[in-house]
Simulated assay, not measured.
Amino acid sequence: MLAFAAAVFFLIITPGPGVLSTAGVGSAYGFRPGLKYVLGLMIGTNLVALAVVSGLAAILFADDRIRTILLWASAAYLAYLAFRIAFAGAKIAFIHRATAPGVMGGILLQTINPKAYAVNTTFFTGFPLAEMSFSAEITLKFLIMNAIWLPIHLGWLWAGVALHQLNLAPRTQRAINIAMALSMLAVVALAALAQI
């Protein structure tokens, strides 16, 4: 169980579209709108996990055409976000929209987030827990995953809010934007390489 909890922690805390966009929403819109976005991400993550556990994701991804369409759609969207981040200029502005993305924005991001599928597949197909029934193991994994997932995302949200409140030099802000964009592009590249 400790190995599973450690895997959950390290796979979720690493930069990916969910945590990077959470920091961006916190930086751009503040904590309260960010909470709605985090709620959407959490719902989306659990929907992806249910798709993995139920086998729906495997059925969909078994069709090369569907898998390719979903891969390119997610890659295009994540590359677009990375582009917006990298060229935000000398101010930290991960996401520039008139209103915060909200709950639905979080749900939609997770449903096309290749890292969410890879991570949930790892969680639910690996790390067998001590001799227990399938339903008990899945339930326990969902509980552990969410208990770790939520504080990590709230931490990233807080980091985005705190980053906004700092008076950083324009050069530093530009470097942060580029680092975040490169991190998102790395996720896109890894997802594409996994399909080859």
Rank of each mutant, 00 (worst) to 15 (best):
L157S: 13
M184V: 15
G18W: 01
A191R: 01
W156P: 08
A159M: 12
S27W: 04
F87S: 12
W156H: 06
P17Q: 13
F127K: 06
L50Q: 10
L140P: 01
L60G: 13
G126W: 02
A98E: 15
V187P: 03
A49V: 05
V19I: 11
A175Y: 08
M132S: 12
F9C: 06
L39Y: 05
A136S: 14
L108P: 08
W158A: 15
P17W: 08
A116T: 02
H96W: 01
A116G: 07
S183L: 13
I144P: 00
P170T: 11
L190M: 14
P151K: 11
T68L: 15
V19P: 11
I66F: 14
R174Y: 03
G30N: 07
F10K: 02
G126C: 01
L150P: 00
I112D: 04
V25D: 04
S183P: 02
N167T: 09
A86T: 08
A51L: 12
V48F: 08
I176W: 01
A82T: 07
Y80K: 02
Y29H: 15
I85A: 13
A76E: 00
G26H: 10
G102I: 04
L47I: 15
G160R: 10
I138P: 02
V53D: 01
A23H: 04
I107S: 10
G102S: 04
R65T: 14
G44C: 03
G30I: 10
Y77N: 07
F142G: 07
A169S: 11
A28D: 08
T45C: 08
G89K: 14
A82G: 12
I85V: 10
A79G: 14
V52Q: 10
G89E: 12
L41P: 09
V38W: 04
I13W: 05
A79I: 15
I43W: 02
R67D: 08
I152K: 06
M104G: 07
L2Q: 06
T22Q: 12
T172S: 10
A79Y: 05
I59C: 06
I176G: 03
P15Q: 09
L39M: 12
T14C: 03
G24P: 10
E131V: 07
G16I: 03
Y80P: 03
R67S: 13
M180K: 03
L39D: 05
L2D: 05
P101K: 08
V161F: 04
H96P: 00
I43K: 02
A186P: 00
N120W: 04
I95W: 06
I152W: 05
Y117T: 00
A88L: 08
A194N: 13
I196Q: 13
I148E: 12
A28Y: 03
L129P: 04
A28K: 14
A192I: 15
A194G: 15
